[in-house]
Amino acid sequence: MIRLEAISRTFVVGTEPVHALRGLSEHVRPGEYVAIMGPSGSGKSTLLHIIGCLDRPTAGVYRLDGETVSELDETALTAIRREKIGFVFQSYHLVGRLDAAGNVELPMVFAGVPRGERRSRAAAALEGVGMAGRTRHRPHQLSGGERQRVAIARATVMRPAILLADEPTGNLDSAAGQQVMAVLRRMNAEGLTLVVVTHDPDVAREAERVVVLKDGRVGRRLTGSELPASGSGK
């Protein structure tokens, strides 16, 4: 499904080139749950952005469902983001002036889904993350865990094939984090391909595979159960 071949991404900071990714290759199959770990600056987020078509590789080939994404123009990338990919961010990125339902409707608004259908789909998505009772709450009236569940509802309401999550539990206490992960796990069980960037070994342990990045390359590949127990490093 996701096929990355020799992906490099170089930023220029000032006059210095910074190599965020250096010839990384990876393959994610449909329905997989993959965790990406690694120290700060190892290129985790950059990798996630490239998979999510928010960023483009400087070199290498990225194929998504057989389509060579790295050759597509901005319009086509926008369509892929809209139809195939959902994003969940560490800081939720909910629109503060819209209530939970309004936030979940947002991607459908831009996709041109009619109002009535939007309402029912948003309600169903919020119910799916256990937020049925709080659809009229604005983000500042919700706890962090609730906000992240609204964000997940928003990311999945367009029924994407892939959900990309960048530190989804990074701002949450462990109880809220576990609730969020339970939601993600269930969605994965229903067939959603899940790629999660995380520092948290407890999160990564639930994944089928863990890819540990180091200096822009794949350092180690593990299964979730091979990770050391909680509290013993990143």
Binding site: G52, L54, E74, T75, T78, A79, I80, R81, R82, E83, I85, F87, H93, V95, L106, P107, F110, A111, R154, M158
Partner: peptide
């Protein structure tokens, strides 16, 4: 800016 970035991540077209 965050909102613009979010809209782009959600697949909003430039024209939109």
């Amino acid at each position: 800016q965050h909102e613009v970035g979010l809209l782009k991540a959600l697949g909003a077209r430039r024209r939109q």
